[in-house]
């Protein structure tokens, strides 16, 4: 794994007088797969929109922080400059795979047009076939002649990945790429992403709410809650020895973690919305271990147990600090 390809520092986003993303920092190294995990309203999707230049279309704006991609400050790019980056160096795989396709144009023609626009090839048709082979699409010639509505969910998601690969990008941002898919297909798509990542030294940001998916493919993971990063680090460390109570609770809340007859440990309450503006740790109201100081100030991300790279934002996770 190389040096850091994308470095996001203290990113804060504002929408209609509300800050749904606050001081988010994370890094993506060359060839790395980073999972961003969070629930509804955690700010994970907005963070991705900010680093793909799609935030303004939704009425949001970056109020603080930076996002440097290979020396480029992504947050100051104009729409025209984005044309040079989006699709060519950073690609997006959306969640709803119908959204990106023109319903009345054959898949092949759409792919060829994208090839002509993004990365002209001598023979766009041949390149389109190559891309479908690349994403292991069976019967590629046949598929190129189909209309989007004739594709199954799994095929569409493969096609969307093929579209993302047109410009041979260095980074793919996949926003819940498998949420709408059946479990058996989900596994295939995840494998494909993993394989592409290994083959072409591609970096992947995988946005998901499913910790199982993280375990399956991610090298490192950033857990977000209420617009903040609460825990981050190598996936095996974070999932194997979680330091933040929220991460622990998420892992314990999965029905597969309990044996027959045991009760699930649900997290009480709800994630905060635009109206909740607490001054302390955002998870404190739902946290079983919360103490007085948790409501007073927001804990910063700090190294856990002197393990480099494993960070948590919790007063109780600090090494040596937690007498209890």
């Amino acid at each position: 794994m190389g040096a850091s390809l994308l470095e996001v520092r203290d990113l804060a986003i504002e929408i209609a007088d509300w800050e749904p993303v606050k001081d988010v920092s994370f890094e993506v190294a060359g060839g790395e797969c980073v999972a961003i995990v969070g629930e509804t309203g955690s700010g994970k999707t907005l963070t991705c929109r900010a680093i793909t230049g799609m935030l303004r279309r939704r009425g949001g704006s970056v109020v603080r922080g930076s996002a440097r991609f290979d020396g480029i400050d992504l947050l100051t790019l104009t729409e025209r400059q984005w044309l040079e980056v989006r699709g060519r160096r950073i690609s997006l795989v959306p969640q709803s795979s119908m959204a990106g396709l023109d319903p009345i144009m054959r898949v092949g023609r759409q792919l060829e047009e994208t090839i002509r626009f993004i990365a002209p090839a001598d023979d766009p048709r041949k390149r389109a076939r190559e891309l479908l082979d690349h994403v292991h699409m069976a019967r590629a010639d046949e598929v190129l002649r189909l209309y989007p509505h004739e594709l199954s969910g799994g095929m569409r998601q493969r096609i969307m990945i093929a579209f993302a690969l047109v410009g041979r990008p260095e980074l793919i941002v996949a926003d819940e790429p498998t949420t709408a898919l059946d479990v058996t297909l989900q596994r295939n798509i995840l494998r494909l992403l993993k394989e592409l990542q290994a083959e072409t030294a591609l970096s992947v940001i995988l946005v998901t709410h499913d910790l199982g998916v993280v375990e399956e493919v991610a090298d490192s993971v950033t857990i977000m809650y209420a617009g903040r990063v609460v825990e981050a680090g190598p996936a095996a460390k974070v999932l194997g020895a979680p330091a933040h109570p929220y991460t622990c609770a998420l892992l314990a809340a999965r029905p597969l973690t309990v044996g027959p007859g045991e009760e699930l440990l649900a997290i009480p309450g709800l994630p905060p919305g635009p109206a909740d503006r607490a001054s302390g740790c955002p998870f404190a109201p739902r946290c079983a271990r919360a103490q007085a100081r948790c409501d007073e100030a927001v804990p910063q991300l700090e190294t856990v147990d002197d393990l480099p790279g494993h960070l948590a934002a919790c007063w109780l996770a600090r090494s040596g600090d937690d007498a209890a």
Binding site: Q186, L239, A241, C248
Partner: peptide, 13 residues
């Protein structure tokens, strides 16, 4: 088999 993350950390908490 397709259940993601079925193995590994499931009980390591």
């Amino acid at each position: 088999d397709a259940i993601p993350g079925r193995t590994g950390f499931a009980r390591a908490l």
